[in-house]
C-alpha cells in the first residue's frame, strides 16, 4: 500500500512538473532535465502496463530498464555543469579539470578491476552496477557543488532547485543501493523504500523551485580582473605564505 502511494504520488508530481514546464517554457532552458523527468514518467507507466498485462515478464523488464534513468541522469549533470558555471569560466575550468581527473580515476579503477578479477563481468549484479553509476554521479555533483560554493557562483532559483533535488536523490540512491547490494539485503524491503522516498522528496523540491521561471542572476561586468589573474594568485599566495612563515618560526607549540 505504502509503495503504491509513493508510486502514484511520484507519477502525479512528475506529470505536474512537466505540465508546469510547458506553461512556463522551462523545458527550453533545461531540456535534459525535463527529458529525464519524461523518461522516468513514461518508464513508470510502461512498467505498470507490463505488470498488469504480463506479470511474469515484469521482473526482467524492471531490471533491464533500471539503467535508463541512471544513464539519462548524466545528461542532467552535464546540463547542471553547463548552466551552473556558464557565467564563471574560471570556476568552470577548475571544475572541468577535477571532473576529468575523477572520470579518469574511475575508468582506471574499472579497467584494473576487469584485469585483476577473472570472474568480473559487466552484469555481475544489477544493483551493483546501478550503485556504481549513481556513485560516479554523486562524485560529479559533489565536485560541481564544491566549486559553486568555493567561488560563490550565483545561479537562478530554478537551477538551484534542480541541483539540490537531484543531488539529494542521488545521495539517497547511493546509500540505499550500497546497502541493498550486500548479500542477503536484496530481498529485504526496507532499503528499497529509501530511494523512492528520496525521489519523492526531490520531486517536491522541484515542484517548489520550478513553479515559475526565474531569471539568471545578473552577470558582473567584465573588467581588468581577467588579465590580472596571475597577479591576484601571486598576491594571495604571498599573503598566505607570509602567515605560514610566522607559524613556522615556532614558539611554545
Amino acid at each position: 500500500m505504502f509503495e503504491q502511494i509513493l508510486w502514484w504520488a511520484g507519477n502525479a508530481a512528475e506529470a505536474f512538473l512537466l505540465l508546469r514546464s510547458f506553461k512556463e517554457r522551462l523545458y527550453e532552458k533545461y531540456p535534459a532535465f525535463y527529458f529525464y523527468l519524461a523518461i522516468v514518467l513514461l518508464l513508470q507507466l510502461f512498467r505498470f502496463s507490463v505488470f498488469v498485462l504480463y506479470p511474469l515478464a515484469f521482473p526482467a523488464f524492471y531490471w533491464y530498464t533500471q539503467f535508463l534513468p541512471a544513464t539519462v541522469g548524466y545528461a542532467v549533470i552535464i546540463e547542471i555543469f553547463k548552466q551552473g558555471l556558464k557565467s564563471s569560466p574560471g570556476a568552470a575550468r577548475m571544475a572541468r579539470t577535477v571532473l576529468w581527473g575523477l572520470l579518469g580515476a574511475v575508468i582506471l579503477k574499472v579497467v584494473v578491476d576487469a584485469l585483476s578479477s577473472p570472474t568480473w563481468s559487466m552484469a555481475t549484479s544489477f544493483t551493483g552496477l546501478e550503485r556504481n553509476l549513481r556513485t560516479v554521479q554523486a562524485l560529479l555533483i559533489s565536485v560541481i557543488t564544491i566549486v559553486l560554493t568555493l567561488y560563490k557562483v550565483p545561479n537562478s532559483r530554478n537551477l538551484k532547485g534542480i541541483m539540490f533535488g537531484y543531488g539529494l536523490y542521488i545521495c539517497a540512491s547511493v546509500m540505499s543501493l550500497a546497502f541493498g547490494s550486500l548479500p542477503g539485503n536484496a530481498t529485504r524491503p526496507g532499503w528499497r523504500h529509501v530511494q523512492p522516498i528520496g525521489y519523492l522528496a526531490a520531486l517536491f523540491i522541484w515542484t517548489y523551485t520550478l513553479w515559475s521561471r526565474y531569471p539568471d542572476p545578473e552577470t558582473e561586468e567584465d573588467s581588468k580582473i581577467e588579465r590580472d589573474y596571475r597577479l591576484i594568485a601571486e598576491q594571495t599566495s604571498r599573503a598566505l605564505s607570509k602567515i605560514r612563515s610566522y607559524f613556522k618560526m615556532g614558539g611554545e607549540l
Binding site: S88, P89, G90, V98, L150, Y229, I232, A233, S237, L240
Partner: peptide
C-alpha cells in the same frame, strides 16, 4: 581571491588547489 578569479579564463587549477 575567489570572487576575483572566478571569471578568469586563465585560471590555473594547480595554483587554485595550492591556495
Amino acid at each position: 581571491h575567489a570572487l576575483g578569479v572566478r571569471r578568469s579564463k586563465n585560471l590555473q587549477p594547480t595554483m587554485e588547489l595550492k591556495l
